[in-house]
Design a protein around this nucleic acid. Structure first.
Length: 269
DNA sequence: CTGCTCTAC
DNA sequence: GTAGAGCAG
């Protein structure tokens, strides 16, 4: 066999391989291959990402975010919390790092030092315990917002634990979290990181057959009230923030679910 | 779980 | 800067 013939056969094999990859593998299989190769960030098509009002969406392996440069923090952080993500592994807590993936320059963690505010995770470290990398990735400064310690370790922590409970009970939920970056806000540090006056968390469960949503809006202060008293409609958070949640949903379903402030499909036990 | 601070090298 | 222990809600 001549070299020329060999090259021709090789070329045909490559073309056919690419064709097969493009046309015969499902989207899910593709994203698995990409993840296995560890070359690209997550396949965002399988996620319900909200719209960005800032034009800067950043993808990490364990979560995506929309960064607001004027407020030096994310306007939202979104990720899927699968049941399989839940873990009891204890990871060593790393240092916070500036997120280099934020092109406009993410805030330095030193803004928070002696500010009186916690570096509050938006995607909690407790939701990414399935690997050391995923856990450490939550310690990027694009994933934190100034929070009062009483609030962070109090009612907000209670809500985060309830989300993990739901992820287990409903075989995964998709989570969007952020501070409301509107109105008059205090700032901290040389870079003037805004201190949100309210925080929101929006959940969608698309795994248990019937799609359901729930949204929480909390004032930036601790509370002893039960969680369900903070439930609002997704629409009301969209009005407040300008963010469009779950635009990829079928419009009829989106409109109906986002208008509701009912929590009857979510167990608060 | 959510964090900060202090000591030591 | 890094590593660890200790403390608090």
């Amino acid at each position: 066999m001549s070299k020329r013939t060999l090259y021709s056969i090789l070329a045909i094999v490559i073309v056919l391989g690419v064709y097969a990859y493009e046309h015969f593998l499902s989207e899910e299989e593709k994203s698995e291959i990409i993840e296995a190769g560890n070359t690209v960030k997550i396949d965002t098509n399988e996620y319900f990402l909200p719209s960005s009002t800032t034009g800067q969406i950043v993808h990490h392996e364990g979560y995506s975010l929309s960064y607001s440069e004027p407020h030096e923090q994310a306007e939202w952080v979104a990720y899927e919390l699968k049941k399989s993500h839940l873990s009891n592994t204890n990871h060593k807590r790393p240092y916070f790092e500036i997120d280099k993936a934020v092109k406009t320059g993410a805030a330095d963690w030193k803004n928070y030092k002696n500010s009186g505010y916690d570096r509050g995770h938006l995607c909690p470290a407790g939701d990414r315990k399935y690997s050391q990398n995923a856990h450490d990735e939550t310690f990027l400064t694009s994933n934190i917002s100034p929070q009062l310690h009483d609030f962070n370790s109090g009612i907000w922590n209670t809500l985060e634990q309830k989300v993990r409970y739901w992820a287990s009970k409903y075989d995964g939920v998709f989570v969007v979290t952020g501070g409301v970056l509107k109105g008059n806000m205090k700032t901290i540090g040389d870079e003037e990181v805004s201190v949100p006056n309210q925080f929101f968390k929006v959940l969608i469960d698309n795994n248990t057959g019937k799609t359901k949503m729930i949204a929480f809006l909390m004032p930036h202060e601790n509370s002893n009230k039960p969680l369900y008293e903070f439930v609002v409609s997704v629409d009301s958070i969209e009005v407040l923030t300008g963010i469009d949640f779950f635009p990829e949903l079928d419009d009829a379903i989106e409109d109906k679910l986002e208008a509701s402030n009912s929590y009857k499909n979510w167990s608060f036990n």
